[in-house]
Structure formats: C-alpha cells, structure tokens
Design a protein around this nucleic acid. Structure first.
Lengths: 126, 126
DNA sequence: GTATCTGCAAATCATTTGCATTCTG
DNA sequence: CAGAATGCAAATGATTTGCAGATAC
C-alpha cells in the first residue's frame, strides 16, 4: 500500500473523532479542505483500512455503516432515536474460544452492539 | 393488522427454516407457489413483522439483512467465507442493566454476532 | 517506469415508495 | 364500506466500479 494524502487525512479524521462517522460524513469533512475529493476514494480507502485493521466497521440496524478509528476492543451503544454511536466502557466478553469449541469453527472476532435511547434523547423527548 | 395470506406464508417459511433467509430468498421461495408475489410485499411484511416482534432482523457486515423466525434470545455465528448464518447455543449475556447504569441510557436490547470460518468451509478450503 | 491512487461518472443492488386495485373485517 | 394489504414499476440511496490521468517509490 502506497502513501496517499487522502488516506492520511482520513486516518487523521477518524482518529481525532469520537463520533464514528459514516463514509458520507468523512467525505463531507474532507471536502472542506479538498473540494476535489471523490466519494469513490473515500469508500475505497475505508475498505482498505478496514481490511488492514486500521479502522473498524460498525454495522448497525440503521441505514449506513459507521467507522471507528479506535481499534482497541470495545463495544457501542446506538441510539434508536438520534442514531448516534457511543463508546461503551465495559470489558470485552471472553466467549470466542467457547464458541469455537462448542461449534467447531474458527472465530476471528465478534460484534456486540447495544440499542436503546440515549440520555440526551430521553431528556429532550426527541 | 389484518390477516393476509402472503404474510402467513412468510411466517410459515421463517418458522420452518433454520437458514435465516434474506428478503430475496424468502421472495424466491414464495414465488414457487405464488408467482405473482411482489418483492415490495415481502419487504413491507418483514418490516411489520419485525416491528411487531414476530421475527428478528440480523444485521451483518455482509451485504444484506437476514431474518430469523425464532424469537427466543440467542446469538449467531456468521461464516465470512460462505456467508451462512448459524444459531449458537450459548446463554444470553446479562449486561443491558449494567450498560443502562454506567451510561445513563435506556437499553432495549443488544446484538451479538460472532464472525469467522465455519467447519464446513474450513474443511473444504472454500 | 510500474504499480498504486485518484476523480469522475455511470452502474449496482438492496430496499423503499406511489398508486390504482383487491382483500379483510 | 373503510382501512389494510398487494402487485407493479419507478425511485432512492448507499456503495461499487471502469477508466484515463496523476502520484508514489
């Protein structure tokens, strides 16, 4: 993988953000400084970075995919009202081995997402 | 919600299947006996049944959404090679309350999916 | 110089929706 | 009959892709 200014910018945005942006949000953010940037490039780079393990895809029951620049194992809470993705500070569950044994498969990882209403939405009856 | 033959058929297919079909697969199955059935109807009914809690959406990192006619709480293993969705027989984790307290939110549920390679794919080097 | 990236625009593909018609209660 | 459900076809919207030019090493 060669260096590219666009990809570096994307990593900077993802690492510096707690909002777990979507591809379109990253695109919008990048356009502020580089109006020429293409959505195709954003998607291509996100796929590469995910493959490489530098960012994490967050697949939800809502419309589109979110990306997380923090690769330390952690889980998310997603608000069904506003759609925001929040980080949770709970220790990782230790079941991968158990699943492998019980189910005779090779587990590479797991995804755990909590859904509900965040305190902000609850208080403002959104 | 009124009775409809199409929706009844969908429920029968979902309850009688362990394959966690996608909307398109349910559509294909239904077409065998009713060539007039419309994809729109399938999607509309899936949305209603999910809302009502009669079926469960399974959102994955793969292309499309799978549906589960079994609503007993359980988790899934999804093969990154063949894409099949398997049921796991492990007891539900008990963290919803904990998340609510730690994070001051209302948790309605959670989704836990294990990813990896199933034994079938591992053995046939797919 | 060659492989890797990029912008652009067109293509994909799952899912949604408007509308006129048909069915359920 | 009134509201709900359907088929059909067109629309949507996120994501992907082909291609020719630009960039990295």
């Amino acid at each position: 993988m060669n260096y590219s200014k666009q990809r570096e910018t994307m990593m900077r945005i993802l690492r510096g953000s707690k909002t777990h942006p979507t591809a379109q949000e990253i695109y919008a953010e990048m356009r502020k400084n580089d109006p020429k940037i293409s959505l195709g490039t954003v998607y291509r780079n996100l796929a590469q970075l995910t493959e490489k393990g530098s960012v994490v895809r967050i697949d939800t029951k809502h419309e589109c995919v979110h990306y997380d620049g923090c690769t330390d194992p952690h889980y998310h809470f997603i608000c069904d009202s506003c759609g925001k993705v929040y980080d949770l500070d709970i220790e990782p569950i230790d079941m991968d081995k158990r699943v492998e044994e019980d189910f005779d498969c090779k587990v590479s990882g797991h995804s755990l997402i909590f859904y509900g209403i965040c305190s902000s939405c609850r208080n403002s009856s959104n």
